[in-house]
Write a protein that binds this DNA or RNA. Structure first.
Length: 420
RNA sequence: GGAGAGGUGGCAGAGUGGUCGAAUGCGCACGCUUGGAAAGCGUGUAUACUCACAAGGUAUCCAGGGUUCGAAUCCCUGCCUCUCCGCCA
């Protein structure tokens, strides 16, 4: 959500920024409604002032045993006018909200204009290996080793699901522990939060209304399955007034993520790259507005730390304006090299939402001057398992068809150093 | 799921139709007092909208409707919390 006052005062800037984000919203209509709304507020508040004064008057007269009938009759009329205007106001508020909730966050000035193909790579880490043998894609090596059973998953849930078994399942558990431990050691509070949330929470982080089609929704209660732990964890702060001294707040949580992938039919259908349910460790920060871009850099580094620990080559890029998600002002994607499929896989997305989410959630903090202010929120995958496991199965694959366990995971695997 | 009770400011807790944004206490901040502290005394202590600012105004006692000239107070609906019963991991 953007600040209405800001939109009012910077209409052209906002319109341009929205276009950069490849979104269409009728700002002019909203501004017209807004000005009408303010006119009515003036009007109705004036009437309410009259009513309040008359009310006091009536009370006084009654106490003195005087007749207040004429004032009461008059106020009856005023009361009607007030309720009419209040009705109009409610209507306008709804119309304004209907538009406002579709306005995306504005891209940060440092973000390049463009679309999907305009990502700017800011750094690369590690050497892309040049294997001397034919590396099998993860779905082949996984099936061969009996640790990935896509057929069973399909039988159970249809297409777009995976099933890990044996050391595959254990590998995932090891990764989750490794990641949570790493982040916790760096000051992130570990969170286990609900995976099913209210519409209100989905709105708070900006998934709704725009991404409605990509969400799983329960029919009886109108609840949503989270597409990322970001939703649950960030909404911890919903409707709170935080103490400025507590910022930055750093949290991390593991969760399954549920995505309908409504618009992605046919893309990456093999293996576990694009699925309806996957697991992810997610980091969330709530920070002072002045520091959010420094915090963004730190958060990217935190995600990279996981990959460096696993010794898997990756690159980091900034998304162009048109590729940014609805709520993001700036976003880094981290892509991991997977030598079996022979390409980079997006494994982490680290974003600064500025005050977009906190406005929606009405989360504020008290600053040094004791004033309330919206903090900034950030989040980043730290990282997604359904992309990380394929990368491990491919990058750590040996010629004899075994897969070496990355060194940092061996303790988490109970000392097992190799699968197969 | 059934029965009951309840939701008031940072917290506790008054307030059952009239001048209530709301007594009182605690907490917190500042000042006085003190060698310093405690105690004591005094002052202050919400959020949002409207507004160029200030002043002023308006709204907010879980949320949404309703009754009324007027609602924290009465009525309806929803949400949440607690207690008991049932069910259950």
């Amino acid at each position: 959500m953007l600040d209405m006052k800001f939109i009012r005062e910077n209409a052209d800037f906002v319109k341009k920024a929205i276009t950069k984000k490849k979104t269409v919203v009728d700002i002019d209509k909203m501004l017209a409604l807004d000005s009408k709304r303010r006119d009515i507020i003036h009007n109705v508040e004036d009437l309410k002032k009259q009513r309040n004064q008359a009310s006091a008057n009536i009370a006084k007269k009654k106490k003195a045993n005087e007749s207040a009938d004429s004032v009461i009759a008059e106020m009856k009329k005023v009361g009607e006018q007030i309720s009419n205007l209040d009705g109009e106001l409610r209507d306008l508020d709804q119309q304004i909200k209907d538009i406002a909730t579709w306005i995306p966050n504005l891209p940060h000035e440092s973000v390049q204009e463009g679309g999907e193909d305009d990502m700017v790579i800011v750094r690369e880490w590690g050497e892309i290996p040049e294997p001397t043998f034919k590396v099998l894609p993860h779905w082949e090596i996984g099936e061969k080793l009996g640790i990935l059973d896509l057929e069973a998953a399909t039988k159970i849930s249809g297409s777009g699901f995976y099933l890990l078994r044996g050391l595959g399942a254990r590998l995932q558990r090891a990764l989750v522990s490794y990641m949570l431990d790493t982040h916790a050691a760096d000051g992130f509070e570990e969170i286990t939060a609900p995976y099913i949330v209210t519409e209100d929470s989905m709105f708070g982080t900006g998934q709704l209304p725009k991404m409605e089609d990509d969400m799983y929704k329960t029919t009886e209660d109108g609840m949503y399955l989270i597409p990322t732990a970001e939703v649950s964890i960030t909404n911890i702060m919903k409707k709170e007034i935080l103490d400025g001294k507590d910022l930055p707040i750093k949290m991390v949580g593991y969760s399954p993520c549920f995505r309908r992938e409504a618009g992605a039919a046919g893309k990456d259908t093999r293996g576990m790259i694009r699925v309806h349910q996957f697991d992810k460790v997610e980091m969330v920060k709530v920070v002072h507005p002045d520091t959010s871009y420094e915090e963004l850099e730190k958060l990217v580094a935190q995600a990279e730390k996981i990959l460096q620990g696993l010794k898997i080559p990756y690159r980091v890029g900034t998304l162009a304006t048109g590729d940014l998600s609805f709520a993001a002002a700036k976003c880094y994607d981290i892509e991991l090299w997977a030598s079996g499929v022979g390409k980079y896989l997006e494994i982490s997305s680290v974003s600064n939402f500025e005050s977009f989410q906190t406005r929606r959630m009405n989360c504020r903090f008290r600053n040094d001057e004791k004033k309330v202010q919206f903090p900034h929120t950030l989040n980043g995958s730290g990282v997604a398992l359904a992309r990380l496991i394929p990368a491990i199965l491919e990058n750590y694959q040996n010629e004899d068809g075994t897969v070496t366990i990355p060194e940092v995971l061996v303790p988490y695997m109970g000392g097992i150093e190799k699968i197969g």
